[in-house]
């Protein structure tokens, strides 16, 4: 009996953790859940509305458009940043004075605060005073990201590539550096072509870091807010209004708390689900060999 009482006291030891988790995750999340099933007309008076907000959201063309825009954006930047990051990592030197030079250069964009990145590109792209915008205008190219949706998209995509490709490069470079020289020497002895070396040595060894790079870039780009907000503010029109920008417009601009709360939850679930699918699929690509082993051993 005495031993049992002592055991109960141990709960107090984990109490701080519970408190931290409660305040950092559970309570905020429950508040959002709370908002998502109620409506209010102010004065802190709430009405129960059930799943109405979710039903609205699922049928809302505005949400559909923002979601498609978001998918397109994440798809484009992944399709560019991952191959580009691998390509740059492959060309980076493995030893000598070039190594620190390249690493520092690569790390620089990652060190800049996100709204500063937005500001840099906002000014860089301006037709009147920006180096890029002004130069393009001088060549007679019609580029104006404040009016032309295509130009706005190009600017936001290039900005993200400029900002985040380094992350992919650094991860891939770390993967490449972990390959012992003997592999390359063996490949030369086996007469492997440059492509075969990439396909059968470098890519398999980068598999793990690439998985992390894709996951990080997908999650980050799916939640992108600051940079496009600073550059285009979601415009022109709604052409660069991604999910998070739309969410902020809904919650703070229009003060539709119920709508916004439902959207937050759906948004969160989408990211969670797609990350899980990504991870499962990509982990299985590397492990597919286990069943064949049993087959071969039988």
């Amino acid at each position: 009996m005495i031993a049992k009482q002592v055991n109960q006291k141990a709960w107090f030891m984990v109490l701080p953790v519970f408190l931290i988790v409660a305040f950092s995750a559970v309570i905020p999340l429950m508040t959002v859940v709370n908002y998502s099933v109620q409506d209010t007309f102010g004065n802190n008076v709430f009405f129960w509305v059930g799943f109405d907000w979710f039903r609205d959201l699922v049928h809302s063309p505005r949400f559909h458009q923002a979601f498609l825009r978001q998918l397109l954006f994440s798809g484009i930047i992944l399709a560019i940043e991952i191959p580009l990051g691998i390509a740059i990592a492959l060309t980076m030197p493995k030893k000598g004075w070039g190594v620190p030079l390249c690493l520092v250069n690569m790390a620089l964009p990652l060190l800049i605060p996100w709204n500063v990145v937005g500001t840099i590109w906002q000014i860089f792209g301006r037709v009147d005073i920006g180096l890029l915008g002004h130069t393009l205008a001088a060549f007679g190219i019609d580029y104006n990201y404040t009016q032309d949706p295509i130009a706005a998209w190009i600017t936001v995509v290039i900005m993200d590539i400029w900002h985040w490709t380094s992350l992919v490069v650094l991860l891939c470079y770390a993967g490449l550096c972990s390959i012992p020289d003997a592999y390359y020497q063996a490949a030369r002895i086996d007469g492997a072509s440059r492509w075969a070396i990439f396909r059968y040595i470098q890519l398999p060894k980068m598999h793990r870091v690439l998985l992390i790079a894709i996951l990080l870039r997908f999650m980050d780009s799916f939640m992108i807010y600051t940079e496009p907000f600073v550059v285009t503010g979601g415009g022109p029109g709604n052409s660069t209004t991604f999910l998070s920008i739309d969410l902020v417009k809904l919650a703070i601009g229009q003060f539709d708390l119920g709508n916004a709360a439902a959207m937050s939850l759906v948004y969160f679930l989408i990211i969670l689900l797609s990350s899980w699918i990504f991870y499962t699929v990509m982990s299985n690509v590397g492990e597919e060999s286990s069943p064949t082993k049993e087959g071969g051993g039988a």
Binding site: S289, S290, T292, K293, G296, G297
Partner: peptide, 8 residues
């Protein structure tokens, strides 16, 4: 082991 993955 001819047709199993060399990795394992």
């Amino acid at each position: 082991d001819l047709y199993s993955k060399a990795q394992h």
